[in-house]
Structure formats: C-alpha cells, structure tokens
Design a protein around this nucleic acid. Structure first.
Length: 112
DNA sequence: TGATTGACCAACT
DNA sequence: CAGTTGGCCAATC
C-alpha cells in the first residue's frame, strides 16, 4: 500500500535491483549511498521485508562488510544464497565471497 | 508509550 | 584473537 511512506525502503529496493549480474554489495555501502552508515541495519531489515514488498529483490547479492553471507538463513535455506551467488559467477567459500573485492559493486561509484 | 530486536559497523577490552 | 560495548535508526511486541 502506498509507497509514500516507504521512501527509505523504496530506495533500498531500487539500489538492490540495480546491482548488476555477478556483482555484490554491502549493507553499509547501500546505507551510506542512501542516507548514513547507521542505516546499515535498516537495510538488512528492509531486505527481510523485501519479500512482502517485492519478490524481485536480489537480496542474495547483498552481503555484509566482510563479504560474509550473514543473511543466508533468511532465504528459506542455508545454502540458497551461496548457490545463487555461485550461479551468477560469484565464488563463495565457507559462506563468504572469495573474490569479494572483484565483484564488489558500490552504488555510490556506479550510480553516483 | 516503553522496551526489545535486528540480514550492521567500528572500536574497545 | 575472540568477546563485549556502543551507536545508529526503525519496526514489532
């Protein structure tokens, strides 16, 4: 209903949807691009609700600052997130993105 | 209305 | 090096 109040969520979803194939970004990067670093938790929280707002949110492309798949449990499966990433060419090992620095996509640098 | 939680981050101990 | 604390902001109980 009415996305007028969701301007924060909407921005998060928009940025996440803009993440290119085979790329990943971090909650902090998104939060920083949208508002402030403190919003990092809200970004993750917004992702949790993403399924209720839009199912097309590639939340699996969003990882924590460490490149670690912190939210893998929320995909309905433990390896779902990792498999989705690997399916896109992202190398995931031990629930962590190996070539994180290669696939890292910063909205502030690409969308600016 | 107040207290708790959260897919985080950074610093301190 | 691992565990704890503080901070940031909003949604849920």
């Amino acid at each position: 209903m009415a996305d007028k109040h969701n301007n924060f969520f909407n921005r998060v979803y928009k940025v996440v949807e803009l993440i290119p194939y085979g790329r990943v970004t971090t909650y902090g990067a998104i939060a920083k691009y949208i508002a402030t670093a403190g919003y990092a938790r809200m970004v993750g929280w917004a992702m949790n609700k993403s399924h209720a707002n839009s199912t097309k949110i590639p939340a699996h492309r969003v990882v924590n600052r460490n490149g670690l798949l912190t939210g893998k449990h929320h995909f309905g499966g433990i390896n779902v997130m990792a498999q989705l990433l690997e399916s896109e060419g992202v190398v995931v090992k031990n629930d962590k993105v190996v070539n994180f620095n290669e696939v890292f996509w910063d909205p502030a640098k690409n969308l600016e």
